[in-house]
Design a protein around this nucleic acid. Structure first.
Lengths: 193, 193
DNA sequence: CCGTACTAACTAACTGTTTGGTTGACAGAG
DNA sequence: CTCTGTCAACCAAACAGTTAGTTAGTACGG
């Protein structure tokens, strides 16, 4: 037909909108839908049919791109954790601020906290992805260094201190309406000399 | 037969041991099996067949005694929470000790922490049983009273303070190998003048 | 016209829940 | 003591619906 160029052009436009035949766009839609589903229902409670429906694509795509329901969850969690790890760098000489920024990240994306909690419950502590473990070691090292330099308290060892700060940042998990101010002030008192 | 009295006696003994035809014993076995199952797999992940098998009785008994899978979970959670609430009374003038004793309770029965976490994730904050809410209000009041009497710090209001202490006591949820000492020392520093 | 993103239809296994029937304990009559 | 009727505790099997995962074919883009 003489309208071939027009059709092609239309498809290209549509493709940019991520509606048809775009592998990466489809994966992205599946991941977004999976974030919704897994955060709400957990791994065992999530339903692949709902994820596909929410993403507006076929269920078989999940298996083509992620292998299995668990594969989808694992990749999703990795992406989300990488994102928060990179967007909230540790500031060893301002741990209250670090806790506050972690708190902010969880407020901005509450699904992440639920995702991580479900992962912990269903997979235990053993299954920590290596990049995350490495990031954790780096943070411990940074805190230890700040302690050596006398910038922050040494009443807690570096590992315990990081654990405490991170734990305070997830205060919203155990308490509704937990405020950022409460988290920050708590860490301030924990590290006060 | 002339051994009828013996048979009857045997049955009575067996009944005392809770092996046959003992409603309360069966309920208890189901609850214990349910604690195992729900703590490990969560509500959505738990399987009634596994619970019945673990309890050594038919799964129809679950529906006879608890109505449904969720009914079984609800009753189980209520019992467990009541137990910890009663066995660990609050000591407003010794909050570090209170946090430590809560920590001990969770160490002694780690399944409780998992049970409560799954409940929070799958039912949200709204679904707090009234007895628990009442116990919570009582604790806030006790802390407020201690603050009025000048026994403990007033840098946090009573509600926040209770939330912080409870949150510290579940440190083991976010950190493997969390120590009792770390929990106690953290609360000490939080309430230090 | 080829490769591949995509889909509808399918399956085999598993899910919570119910049902109909069985069994053991016990009270009262003989 | 023995027999028997009753009732609650119990179980095996079946139920209807749902599940994760598969497959064979379609159609689009290059």
């Amino acid at each position: 037909m003489s309208t071939n160029w027009l059709v092609a052009s239309t498809n290209r436009l549509v493709k940019l909108a991520g509606v048809v035949r775009d592998k990466e766009a489809t994966k992205a839609k599946l991941l977004e839908a999976a974030l919704d589903e897994f955060a709400e229902y957990g791994i065992a409670g999530a339903r692949v049919d709902r994820i596909a429906a929410k993403a507006g694509c076929n269920k078989a795509m999940i298996y083509a791109y992620f292998g299995s329901k668990e594969g989808l969850f694992d990749q999703l969690l990795k992406i989300q954790i990488d994102h928060v790890v990179q967007s909230v760098p540790i500031t060893p000489d301002d741990l209250p601020g670090y806790a506050g920024r972690l708190f902010d990240a969880y407020q901005e994306e509450p699904r992440l906290l639920r995702l991580a909690a479900y992962h912990r419950l269903e997979n235990g502590f053993d299954t920590i992805p290596e990049p995350e473990a490495q990031a954790h070691r780096h943070k411990v090292e940074a805190i230890a260094q700040a302690q050596v330099e006398g910038k922050i308290t040494a009443v807690f060892n570096a590992t315990d201190l990081l654990d405490l700060v991170v734990h305070m940042s997830i205060l919203a998990f155990s308490t509704p309406n937990a405020s950022r101010d409460l988290v920050v002030r708590s860490v301030e008192r924990l590290i006060a000399e």
